[in-house]
Structures are given as structure tokens and as C-alpha cells.
Simulated scan of single mutants.
Amino acid sequence: MATLKDIAQRANISTSTISRFLNEDPTLSVSEDKKRAILEAVESLGYQSPKRSKKQFIHHEAPKTNEPVGAHVVMLNFLTPTQEIDDPYFTSIRAGIQNRCLEKGIDLRTLHLDQVDTNLKLIENSPALIAVGHFADHVVDTLYKANRNIIFVDSNPLGSKTDAVLIDRFALSEEVMQNILKNRCKRPAFIGNNEERLHVFRKVTKENGLYHETLCKVSKEYCIESGYQAMKEMLRLDELPDVVYAATDMVAVGVYRAIYECGLTIPGDIQVIGTNDISSARHMSPSLTTMRLFPFEMGEIAIDMFIEKMAGRPYKKTVLFGHEFIWRDSFKMA
């Protein structure tokens, strides 16, 4: 059976865009050419989706499966629609969730953080809740009181009390830092949030006598602007960093901009390492060395875990995804 990945390959359009289009996302802006390409790929591949409109798509009889066709699940996203558009990582997680729901005939109902209080009954009555992102303690308490069948994606605030789908931030940041040490970098810098990657960066640099507080920029945002502003501050220092570890590729884009505005080069003056391997990372100049993650697959696995729950799985489960270091031109191989 055809999947969103098949359509993406045929239409040469990202899976996240296709998923949002098929789900009639009101925040999506897409050209008529792309709409036509998606529809043509859907028709030629015989893609089957319970969400499709009869006016837009060719009808195909849904296959008979043993999966809970007709079931529904609520997905709660901690980002606003506008924030999510600017974050390819969480957009890909949502696309993976939507894709698996479409494949399995599961009705997906989406909420954002500001809609929790007015939709508590919906959350309470749902067979499970998929909570994507990072939530304040009081929100976690509210959610757990409303529905104990929670599957957290990219966080695990309640430990063994709930299911979770995670990336191993400790392991991936350890690998980044070991490569920085192997390259004999003397003034490593970090730009990101206050989480595991920051903690590993501080631990490793302090252990090796390389820590400088001015080269550690903590921000609440994972965006181009936060990377740009943090890098601009570092570029005012008397001694510049020789490598920047950016918590996301979007942050790295801002880092590139600030470095080039200052008349410096990458990797000649400052090397850069990102995280996520977004589609544009290989096309940056120079191409971005980064850590490849698997957010689309994380979203799919969250729905697989929901299906297991509905089939009677009696225990809680945590799935920990791996990563892959992608060597490109922004960081010199030792």
C-alpha cells in the first residue's frame, strides 16, 4: 500500500507538506502546481486515506485489517501552529503521526496547548492522548488527571507512569563533543536550550578545561533568530569560538548568517555543527555537518504504541531512537 513517503518521492515534495495538505491544514500555504503534483501522485499510486474528500480524491475501498479502524486519538502539540511551521523537527513528528493514522484508519483530533482547558472532556474521553513536545509541570498534572493513557513524544516527564518516544540527547551530544575534542578545538561554543545537550556540553568542556561561560548561550527558542542573536554576541568577544554546536539546524542557519555578516568564513574561521539534518542542511554553503534524527518515524511509532494499547498491552513502554552523525563541510574531519 502506498504511503506518504511514496507520494513525496513521486511529487518531489516533503512528507510534512503532503500530510498537512491531505489533512486540510488551514495554516498551510501551497501553490497550485504543488497541489496538482500531490493529487496526481495520490491518484497514480492509489493512496488510501480516510480523511480524503470525495470531491478531491479518487475513492478506494478501505482494506480490511485487524487494526482498530474507526478508533480515534487526540494529539496535543505544545507549539502554536505558527511556531510549528518554523520548526521542521516537530512538523515532521506531526506528519509521522498523521501518516500512520491515515494508514490505519484512525481519526486524529489535534489540539494545541492553549486549547487544553476548554477540551478536557475530549481528552478524558479519548482512548489515549499523544502529547508532543515539552510541557510545564502543572500542564502535565492536568493531562494525567484527565487521561492516564498518555504517550509522550520527545519528552518523558512522568517516567515509567506513561509511554514515551524519545531521542537519546545524552548519547548524541556526547558523540558531538567527542568529535569536537578529536578535532582539537580550543574554544567550543553552544547555542540551545537548557536541557541534556547543554548539560553534556558543560560537563565535557569543564572536564577538559575548555569551558567559557561567554561561549554558552541559553535560549528558550530553537529558531533562526535566536541563533543569529546569540552568535552576534559571541562575535563581539575579544576571543572568538572556533566551533559552534547548535542545538538545531535552524539555530545553525542563524549562526551562519551572523558569521558571514562579520566577514568570517565557515569552516576556516569558525566551524559549525547542527542537529536534525533538515532537508536544506546539505544545500547550505558550506553544507552543514549535523546529527541526523528520525522525527517522522518517531511520530509513526507513537501511533503504533497507541494501537498496542488498544490491543491490550498491559505494560508501559519507552522507545529510544538512535541518531547518525552526518559529516559535511562545515566541520573538519579529524
Rank of each mutant, 00 (worst) to 15 (best):
L28E: 03
S29V: 10
V30W: 02
S31K: 09
S31A: 04
E32T: 12
K35Y: 04
K35I: 07
R36G: 02
R36F: 05
R36S: 05
E40V: 08
V42T: 06
V42A: 01
E43D: 11
L45Q: 04
G46C: 05
G46I: 01
Y47L: 02
Q48V: 15
S49L: 10
S53K: 12
S53R: 09
K54G: 11
K54T: 12
K54P: 03
K55L: 15
Q56A: 09
F57D: 06
I58K: 15
H59F: 14
E61Q: 10
E61G: 08
A62R: 13
P63R: 04
N66T: 13
E67V: 13
E67A: 10
E67Y: 15
P68R: 06
A71L: 03
A71E: 12
A71F: 04
H72Y: 11
H72N: 14
V74G: 03
V74R: 01
M75C: 14
L76W: 02
L76R: 01
N77I: 14
N77A: 13
F78A: 11
F78S: 10
L79M: 14
L79R: 05
T80Y: 08
P81A: 01
P81I: 07
P81H: 08
Q83F: 09
Q83M: 12
I85D: 07
I85N: 04
I85K: 13
D86F: 11
D87F: 13
D87R: 01
D87E: 14
P88D: 05
Y89S: 01
Y89E: 03
Y89V: 07
Y89F: 15
T91E: 08
S92P: 06
S92W: 05
S92F: 06
I93P: 05
I93F: 10
I93Q: 00
A95I: 05
I97T: 05
I97N: 00
I97D: 03
Q98C: 10
R100L: 12
R100K: 15
L102D: 15
L102F: 12
E103P: 03
G105C: 05
I106T: 06
I106V: 11
D107N: 14
L108M: 13
R109I: 15
R109S: 12
T110R: 11
T110W: 05
L111D: 08
L111S: 04
L111N: 11
L113G: 11
D114I: 05
Q115F: 07
Q115S: 10
Q115M: 13
V116Q: 08
V116I: 15
V116H: 08
D117H: 10
D117Q: 14
D117G: 00
L120S: 01
L120T: 01
K121W: 04
K121P: 01
E124S: 13
E124T: 14
E124F: 09
N125V: 09
N125M: 10
S126M: 07
P127H: 09
A128F: 00
L129E: 02
I130G: 02
A131H: 02
A131S: 06
A131M: 10
G133C: 09
G133V: 07
G133I: 12
G133M: 08
H134C: 06
H134S: 13
A136P: 01
A136T: 04
D137I: 00
D137S: 12
D137N: 08
V139H: 04
V140D: 00
V140S: 00
V140L: 02
V140R: 01
D141Q: 12
D141G: 04
T142L: 06
L143I: 03
Y144N: 04
K145D: 08
K145M: 10
A146P: 04
